[in-house]
Amino acid sequence: MAIRVQVEAFDPGAEVNAMHAANVGVGAVVSFVGYVRDFNDGLDVAGMFLEHYPGMTEKALAKIAIEAEQRWPLLKLEVLHRIGALEPGEPIVFVAAASAHRQAAFDACAFVMDYLKTRAPFWKKENTSEGARWVEGRDSDHVAAGRWKA
């Protein structure tokens, strides 16, 4: 399991390739990449700033990843999230799960994203055409996370 919270940009393709490098037991890799959009809730977005809770953010992501590893037979799991200033088009989050067969990888990847959205302390502040604004949480994210309740 790898957890990375970083200011630096990353290459999603290289991250995916690294998921099965040196492990021919990996039969499936499912990955999710989230990107900064240039439009949200009716306004143009020129960029955003990602605030986090140093220490807790890493712990919260590790806790989510450990739960995923307990629920599915994963061979590798990576969670990478950027912080700081980001521009439209840049990758902001990367989650990838590797397993012998596809279903565990699909489910674990979706689970980690749904829990990250509702439990990991990150906050987006957008620079819009009408000034800076904090992004509001969405109820639909909690509905999505609720489907994984045991």
């Binding site: 989230g34 439990r119 990991a120 302390p121 906050w123 904090w134 992004v135 509001e136 949480g137």
Partner: peptide, 10 residues
Amino acid sequence: VAFFPPVTGG
């Protein structure tokens, strides 16, 4: 102890 608004990462 920390207080914060709903999280919006991802």
